[in-house]
Amino acid sequence: MVDRVDINRLLVEMRAMKQQTMPTRARELDQVSHALKPGQVINAPESTDNFSHLFSQAIDKVNATQQQANQLAKAYETGRENIDITDVMIASQKASVSFQAMVQVRNKLVEAYRDVMNMPI
């Protein structure tokens, strides 16, 4: 059985993320655009790459978590004092979980892209 996400919940989450990443002026225009009649057009602000910037920041955070885990592991291996094996294992698991989550996000984005590209015109 295929586990499907409730489309309404997904749309609400996507709109909330969009609102968080939009500059104030773009938010105002977005709210106005919902009140427009079909076919009515407004001048849109310059397109910014907010999503790619947000995604890039997330990747950087995952990378930083992995580097921190590697540094802790090397410090433990070299016998540096005040480094506990539990701290090393926790950092390693955090890095692993964050990487797995990032892979799942990427997979969902690719799946959504494919779905959009396969939509009939």
Rank of each mutant, 00 (worst) to 15 (best):
V105M: 09
L72F: 03
A75D: 03
L29W: 01
S96Q: 12
A91Y: 04
R114S: 15
A73W: 00
Y76H: 01
A64K: 07
R25H: 09
M17Q: 09
A26S: 13
Q40G: 02
L36C: 02
I85S: 11
R15N: 13
R114W: 08
A16E: 10
M119P: 04
I7N: 13
L10E: 10
D60P: 04
E77M: 02
A58N: 08
Q31V: 03
D60I: 06
E81L: 10
Q67Y: 07
N107L: 06
V5D: 03
Q31N: 09
M17G: 06
E111T: 05
Q31H: 06
A58I: 03
L10K: 07
K61T: 15
E13F: 07
I59Q: 14
I121R: 15
M14Y: 06
E111M: 04
G39E: 00
Y76K: 01
V116C: 06
Q66D: 09
M117S: 08
M89I: 07
M1A: 11
V116Q: 07
E111I: 03
K61Q: 15
Q57H: 05
D60K: 12
A95G: 04
I90F: 11
S98E: 15
P38F: 04
K61V: 12
K37W: 07
V2H: 08
A69Y: 01
D84I: 02
D3Y: 07
T65W: 09
L72D: 00
A112C: 10
M102T: 12
D115V: 10
D84T: 05
M17A: 13
T24C: 08
A95W: 01
N82M: 02
M102V: 10
V103W: 06
M22E: 04
E28A: 13
A16P: 00
V5W: 05
A69E: 00
Y113G: 10
Q104P: 02
R4A: 05
Q40C: 03
S92N: 14
